[in-house]
Design a binder for these strands. Structure first.
Lengths: 191, 191
DNA sequence: GCCTGCATGTAAGAAGTTACATGATTGC
DNA sequence: GCAATCATGTAACTTCTTACATGCAGGC
């Protein structure tokens, strides 16, 4: 069983584990609602490419039918797909998460910048965290219908709550850094 | 001023903002010690490729000299490089961090797995977080020599402390998820 | 004498992005 | 009638990784 697929391929396969069948367009929407927060938001073109590959491998089943004047294809997880997913999760280690933290990257080299720019960046990050928190709260609410153990959205709800905690923690770390940067007076203000 | 370079290129340029000049090999070591935790650990081959590009653009200055029987090239930030870095940080937004969270990705689709595998994954993550915390603590200690405001390692120390807080928070979120998964009995244990 | 670390790359390929292209449906 | 959304891709390109290749220096 070839399990040397990229993680994003498994991610897309995983979006089909909730018992419904989706169009490529809907897969993209679901990715934007969930995967975006702790994986990536794949481009439309990549979604279709991955679905084509998964279909070739027999891991999803594609069903095309006429919807009025156009052809619409929906995709569903196949038994082989479910088995491949299970094998991947039980037999390969998850590995350590990779953070591509644009804010920390810039903070690291802020010696090449100036204190006011740094503070502005951190305040902007706080605003964006607020917005992300709002978005994810909305997603979390939409899972309430089936978030009990054994139901379809149980694990997604655990993940969403983790994500909410993560954003709250990030905001705390950002404020802490801002306070630390404010502690000592800005040299450029002095005569 | 062409500032449409990939972020990783700026990241490598940023490693040269600490006043010293490094070989490609040393740049890679510094990346592994710092960037690894909140950006990426670029491959050796990419480090050399980026340094060549930065040299072509005049953003770093390469100096080759004979060290015994072999030629060794060291790289230092040029004035143009410093200006480009500053322009990048003041004129372009940082954007939102991207988390490639292998553990949350798998947790999302754990309905296709089984409870024991999920718990094993989370416990393994806790162990890896411990190891990462140790590593980063070592890095943080090595910055003590110059971590006061205005000194070379001031911003790196702010970043390292943020990173330590982040790992501690991750461990907390992981334990919380583990407890939540333990709350309800494993159906497969029942008769 | 051998192994580890230092030092420097090339080449091939996969993964993923942006830009381009097309057309139907639905709500206003 | 027009705009936004639904729906599906192709093509070109960049980034980044893995595998390969080479050789010196220093410690045991």
């Amino acid at each position: 069983m070839s399990q040397d697929l990229p993680q994003t391929t498994y991610a897309i396969l995983g979006l089909l584990t909730f018992g419904d069948e989706l169009t490529g367009y809907e897969v993209k929407q679901r990715a934007d609602a969930t995967l975006r927060f702790y994986w990536v938001a794949p481009a439309m073109s990549q979604v279709y490419k991955e679905l084509a590959r998964l279909t070739d491998l027999g891991l999803v089943e594609a069903r095309t039918r006429a919807d009025g004047g156009r052809e619409v294809t929906t995709y569903a997880l196949s038994p082989a797909g479910e088995q491949t997913l299970r094998a991947w999760m039980t037999e390969t280690p998850a590995g350590f998460p990779v953070l591509k933290h644009t804010v920390l990257l810039r903070l690291l080299m802020s010696r090449a910048s100036d204190p006011e720019t740094v503070r502005r960046m951190l305040r902007a990050y706080l605003d964006e965290l607020d917005a992300a928190l709002d978005d994810l709260t909305g997603v979390r609410e939409s899972l309430r219908s089936a978030d009990e153990p054994g139901q379809a959205f149980y694990y997604p709800s655990v993940v969403a709550d983790w994500g909410l905690d993560y954003f709250v923690a990030e905001a705390r770390h950002t404020r802490k850094a801002l306070e630390r940067l404010a502690e000592h007076p800005d040299r450029s203000d002095e005569p």
